[in-house]
């Protein structure tokens, strides 16, 4: 394509390697960057470099952080005997935003997925066993997604930890708050009924 700048072609090509970015989006981003005001691209490039250089997994939980330890693990008021297992750092952010959880996290960096060739060895399972032992954890809450991969990973963790005598729980599934029963799919509704709770106790 002689009419197109080779450099633009290369940038578009690099951008399409990013998750969720197709050719059209990559082109839009490219033209945005070309038209961006003075300094924007330089700052962005510097930021990307800094992020890549300074951000790394927390040595305790695997959350992404600029230091050796993430903010949660560095916080002395957190209950280290309560561990919430999540798939990705982004999931940790979600649970943390609820303000309901005072334990610590463990980021698996994925889920078991035989079809994608991801087994327990590629995830941070050994580290989890280690932490449960060293901190004498009383409960591990598994907050992986409620799909086949998330559920089988949760089951694997429960079996893995059962010799250690720690309680392993799974987050409940049910109806969204403020939602209408009308909008719930039948299976979610059925599970919400199965997991019903007594009122006024």
């Amino acid at each position: 394509m002689a009419w197109q700048s080779k450099l633009i072609g290369r940038l578009v090509n690099e951008l399409t390697k990013m998750p969720g970015v197709g050719r059209k989006t990559a082109q839009r981003l490219t033209y945005f960057l070309l038209k961006a005001p003075e300094g924007y691209v330089e700052n962005l490039a510097r930021l990307l470099n800094e992020v890549k250089q300074h951000v790394s997994p927390c040595r305790e939980c695997g959350n992404l952080t600029e230091g050796e330890q993430c903010g949660v693990c560095a916080d002395d008021t957190r209950n280290r005997r309560l561990i919430c297992v999540v798939e990705e750092p982004a999931d940790l952010t979600l649970v943390e935003r609820t303000g309901e959880f005072n334990g610590v996290y463990h980021v698996l960096m994925g889920v078991i997925s035989p079809l994608e060739g991801i087994g327990p060895d590629q995830l941070r399972m050994a580290e989890l066993v280690n932490r449960v032992q060293t901190h004498q954890a009383v409960e591990v809450i598994v907050a992986t997604d409620p799909d086949v991969e998330g559920d089988t990973t949760a089951y694997y963790i429960a079996k893995l930890l059962s010799p250690l005598g720690v309680k392993v729980t799974r987050i409940a599934r049910g109806l969204p708050v403020g939602g209408d029963l009308d909008f719930a799919d039948e299976v979610t509704l059925a599970q919400a009924i199965a997991g019903r709770q007594e009122i006024g106790k």
Binding site: I112, P114, L115, G119, P120, V148, T152, K159
Partner: peptide, 18 residues
């Protein structure tokens, strides 16, 4: 998924959840 595990002779502990 279970067939993928059987295809590469995965250990019991990995089969169990499936």
């Amino acid at each position: 998924s279970r067939n993928a595990l059987l295809a590469r002779a995965a250990p019991r502990a990995e089969m169990e959840p499936y």
